[in-house]
Nucleic acid binder design. Structure first.
Lengths: 338, 338
DNA sequence: CTGAAAGCGCTTACAG
DNA sequence: CTGAAAGCGCTTACAG
C-alpha cells in the first residue's frame, strides 16, 4: 500500500495514455486554451487512471508566479498571534494565496535559520512578520529584498518596513492610568517575559505611567506567559497587604492572578483590583468580568497581509481597528480602610 | 522603492558577476561539493550584491524533494486545532519540513476547492487532516494517492487512513457519567454546532450515556462555539429549576455557562454542577476550577504528523497521550432540597 | 576543484 | 483546436 519511491506520473505520462500531446494536457489543466470536449474527456480519464497531480514546482518555475505568503509567527499559542494567523490565512486564501508558517523564538532567530531558508526557498510573494522584534538584523539579511510587512507592538516611529500597529504601549499606559484614577496609591504589575534584558513593552509603559503620575514603582513580578507562573506571581502579590491594584500583561495572566487572589481569601475588586490587556472572548465571561484593553488582532492580521499584498494591488477589507479600554467588574476604588 | 516587475536575479546572473560557471554557484549554494575558498568568497559577494535568493521552485523541481507538509485545519480558533497546529509546525520544522495551512469548513469543502488545489500544487510530502469529518469524498478525490493522516474525534473503527484518535466520545461519555454518579437525576447539555444534520459526536455520546443509565434525555441547547451563544444557552438553563447538572461541549462553553449561572443568582456547584471537555490551561484557574476531561491535542498533533512522516522513517517523539477525567470544583452532588 | 551538457515537469508562443 | 520547440532556474552526473 505505501507504494514504491518511483516518481509520480507526469504530464508526459498522461499525454501518452490519452494519446495526445503534452501541451494539450497542459491546456485542459489550465483551461486557458479551448480543447475539444472529446479530447478533454480522454485526458481527464488518463489523469484519473494514473492518479496524476500537477507538479507545483514546475508550474511555479515556468509561470514565475509566487502563490505562497510566508508568516513568521511566535513560538507560542498566545491569543494575539493565533488570531492574527487565522485572519491572515483567511484573507490570503480569498486572494488566492497559500500560507506557510514558521514559528520563531524572537530571542533566537539564529537557531531557526534552516526553517527560514526553507521558507525563503519556496515561491513566496512576501513575508508577514507578526512580531517586529523578531525582525532583527539576522532576519533582515535572510529576507533580502523580499517584500515584508510587520506588526509593531509599541509606539516606535523609525520603522523602515511597511507595518501596522497594535499599540501595546498605549494599552498598558491607559490601563495603569485607569487604576490610578480609581484612587489606588500605586499599581503592581505581573509582567510578560522580557527578552534580551529589555523589559516587555507593556511593562515599560506601565512604569512610565506610574512615573508620569508620580506614583511609586513597585517591584515587578515576571512570568513566562504560563498560567502556572502567573498563579505564583499572583499568590505572592495577593498576600501582600500593600497591594490594591494589579495590572497584568495580558488577560490570561489576569485570570490566573484572580484565581490566586481568591485562594488567598481576598476578593476582586473589593480587596484588589485586577486588569489585563487583549480583551479575549473570555474576559467578559469571567466572574468578575475582566477590565481590560481591547486590542484588535483580527484587524492587525488582515491589515498586515494587505499591506504586503498592496504591491499587487488588492482591495482592502481590513476596516477600522476597534480598540480601547473596556471597564468591567474587576476594577474598583481601593477599600476605604486600606 | 517598490521596484519594478523585472525577474529576480538567477544563478546565471550570479555566475556572470562572480566570473564562474553556473554549477560552481550551485555548489557553494548546496555545499555538496568542495569549492575553493577564494571562489566561494567571490560567489558569496556576487550573491549579496545582486540580492540573490535561490528559486525554490526550480530547486524542488530538479531535486524531486517535497519539503512541505500540508495541514488542513478548521475555520475556527478552537483550542484543539490551535494546539495541534502549533505542535505540528514545531515537529515538522525539526524534521526539516515547512508547514502550509488551509482552513476549511468541513460542511463546505467544495467551496475551498481552489485553496486545496493551490496546496496540492505545492511540493508537499503529504497532508494532515485535523478533522476526519473534513475528509469526505470530495477531499479524498482531490488528494488522490498523496500520503494522508488524520485525527479521529470519535470511536469510528472502519477508517481507511492512517490516523490518531482523540476520543471525544469517551470523554463525553465519562463526563456525563461522572455527573450522573454524583447523584444527579439527569444531565443537561450545551452542545457544539452540528453539521449536516448529524449531532456532534460529544452530543451523541452524552445522549448515549443518559440512555445507558436509564436517565431522561432533556432537550439540547445548541451553540455555534461562540461565547455569546453559550451564555444565552446557559442563561436559559440557569433559570430552569429542573437543571442541576450541565455538561458543556467544551471548556469555553462551560466558562460562559458558569457566568450565566452566576448572573442568574445561582452557584456552581452548589446549585448547578458544570463540566466541560478539553482541559485547557484556564480550566484550573477558573473560580470554581472546572471539572473537565483532558484531551491531549499536543500529542495528537505530533503523532498525526509522525504518522504521515513514517513513510519517510523518522523517529517518534510523540510519547504517550495524557488524558482522562479531571475532577475539580465545579461539580458536586445535587442539593438535598432539589 | 571547475566547466559544458542534460534534464527535472511544466507552460507559452509559434506554427499549422 | 492541436503539435513540435523552447525555456523557466536549478542540480547532477560526466569529464577534465
Amino acid at each position: 500500500m505505501p507504494g514504491g519511491r518511483k516518481r509520480p506520473p507526469t504530464i508526459a505520462d498522461v499525454a501518452r495514455v490519452a494519446g495526445v500531446s503534452q501541451p494539450t494536457v497542459s491546456r485542459v489543466l489550465t483551461g486557458n486554451t479551448p480543447v475539444r470536449d472529446v479530447t478533454k474527456e480522454r485526458v481527464r480519464a488518463a489523469m484519473k487512471s494514473l492518479g496524476y497531480r500537477p507538479n507545483g514546482a514546475a508550474r511555479a518555475l515556468v509561470q514565475g508566479r509566487q502563490p505562497i505568503v510566508g508568516v513568521i509567527t511566535r513560538d507560542t499559542a498566545l491569543h494575539g498571534y493565533t488570531r492574527m494567523l487565522a485572519n491572515i490565512e483567511s484573507r490570503a486564501r480569498q486572494a488566492g494565496y497559500l500560507v506557510a508558517i514558521v514559528a520563531l523564538d524572537p530571542a533566537d532567530v539564529q537557531k531557526a535559520t534552516s526553517a527560514l531558508d526553507l521558507l525563503l526557498g519556496q515561491p513566496i510573494v512576501g513575508v508577514v512578520v507578526l512580531d517586529y522584534t523578531t525582525y532583527d538584523t539576522r532576519l533582515k539579511d535572510s529576507l533580502g529584498n523580499l517584500p515584508v510587512s510587520t506588526v509593531i507592538h509599541g509606539d516606535q516611529t523609525d520603522i523602515d518596513v511597511p507595518h501596522v500597529r497594535v499599540d501595546d504601549r498605549r494599552a498598558a499606559y491607559e490601563v495603569t492610568n485607569h487604576l490610578l484614577a480609581l484612587g489606588h496609591r500605586t499599581v503592581h504589575h505581573v509582567a510578560a517575559p522580557s527578552r534580551s534584558g529589555e523589559p516587555h513593552i507593556r511593562e515599560a509603559a506601565w512604569r512610565q505611567a506610574l512615573i508620569d503620575a508620580g506614583a511609586p514603582v513597585p517591584e515587578v513580578r515576571r512570568t513566562d506567559w504560563s498560567i502556572k507562573a502567573a498563579r505564583e506571581a499572583g499568590a505572592a502579590l495577593a498576600h501582600d497587604p500593600d497591594v490594591t491594584a494589579i495590572f497584568c500583561a495580558n488577560d490570561e495572566i489576569a485570570f490566573a492572578v484572580m484565581r490566586s487572589i481568591h485562594e488567598a481569601g481576598k476578593r476582586v475588586p473589593e480587596d484588589i483590583s485586577v486588569a489585563g490587556i487583549d480583551d479575549e472572548p473570555l474576559a467578559a465571561a469571567w466572574v468578575p468580568a475582566l477590565t481590560t484593553f481591547r486590542l484588535d488582532f483580527d484587524w492587525a492580521g488582515v491589515a498586515a497581509l494587505e499591506l504586503l499584498m498592496e504591491l499587487d494591488e488588492l482591495h482592502s477589507t481590513a476596516g477600522t481597528p476597534s480598540y480601547g479600554l473596556v471597564v468591567r467588574e474587576s476594577t474598583a476604588p481601593p477599600a476605604p480602610a486600606a
